[in-house]
Computed example of a mutant assay.
Amino acid sequence: MELNRRHLLAALSALGLAGASAQAKPVKSPFKKIGVQLYTVRDAFAKDPVGTLKRVKALGYDQVETITFGGVSARDFKARLTDVGLTAPSGHVGLTDWQTRAEAALDDQVAVGARYAVLAWLPTEDRDGWKAWADKMNTWGQLAKSRGLTFCYHNHDFEFKKTASGDMPYHVLLENTDPSLVTFELDCYWASFAGHDPVHILQEHGTRIRQLHLKDKLADGSMAPVGEGTIDFAAVLDAAVKGGVENVYVEHDNPADPWASIATSIKNLKG
């Protein structure tokens, strides 16, 4: 699993909670279960997987989205989750795994109890030939479907930048993937950073979007915990419910204090 999968602004390296809006905006999430993407607390998880899961649970989270299994087998990781009282309905699978061991990686997601297997990142050198990527996603989607899983693609900002031919990669993927095989995990921050309203995206393509990453954007474009920035998450989550989104995950790509970040997000989400 590749962990170096985020296209980060240089300013994010020291962001954390600094620069958050003066007045938080409690969201009162309509989703009964709120998850956290473990990438946010990746350093803590690498050092102490079980302790990290317990701390996530204690903050009030119900679910996690995986990036690794903390050095144990998928089956053993599932047992750890059960002991702590968490579930992992979705897992990020690195591009190398999709390309070289897709079936084994999908079997691992089944063993963990996931329903979604997510491709979360394309390196800079691979960001072309979007129709070919759509074809690959259809193939991986079929492998996932045969195991009772659903393939999901997670965006950053580059999917919303038009190519030299005038095509928007996000639209190319939507138009050339089979809706029965390929779904999308909308990252609200990166969509907004690229200049697109996540509410509009959900309203236009909600039937294809089954999961959300929740992280806010400050006026200067940097990341913030949910409810601390400019994104209207009340409207986002309302559109998500109407569109049939199943899972939502709090995330911050590079906070100075990961625990403070996800604690603030869930506090605001629970109103």
Rank of each mutant, 00 (worst) to 15 (best):
T87N: 07
A88S: 07
P89Y: 01
S90F: 01
H92R: 12
H92C: 07
V93D: 03
G94W: 11
L95H: 06
L95T: 10
T96G: 04
D97I: 06
W98I: 00
W98N: 04
Q99L: 15
Q99K: 15
T100V: 10
A102Q: 14
E103L: 12
A104L: 13
D108W: 01
Q109F: 15
V110W: 04
A111W: 05
G113P: 14
G113Q: 12
Y116T: 15
L119F: 06
A120V: 08
W121T: 02
L122K: 03
L122E: 11
E125Y: 01
R127H: 00
R127N: 00
G129E: 06
G129Q: 06
K131G: 10
A132K: 13
A132M: 06
W133P: 04
K136R: 15
K136Y: 15
M137E: 04
W140F: 13
W140E: 10
G141V: 08
A144R: 10
S146D: 09
R147H: 07
G148M: 10
T150E: 04
T150W: 03
C152M: 07
H154L: 01
H156G: 00
H156V: 00
E159Y: 11
K161R: 06
A164I: 01
D167K: 09
Y170C: 09
Y170T: 05
H171S: 09
V172M: 13
L173E: 12
L173W: 13
L174F: 15
E175H: 10
N176A: 01
N176L: 02
N176V: 06
T177Q: 08
P179R: 11
S180C: 01
L181D: 11
L181E: 12
V182D: 00
V182P: 06
T183R: 03
T183D: 14
C188A: 07
Y189A: 05
W190M: 02
A191E: 00
A191D: 00
S192R: 10
F193I: 05
F193S: 03
H196Y: 11
H196M: 02
D197A: 01
P198N: 13
I201H: 09
I201N: 03
I201F: 06
I201P: 04
I201A: 05
Q203N: 13
Q203Y: 02
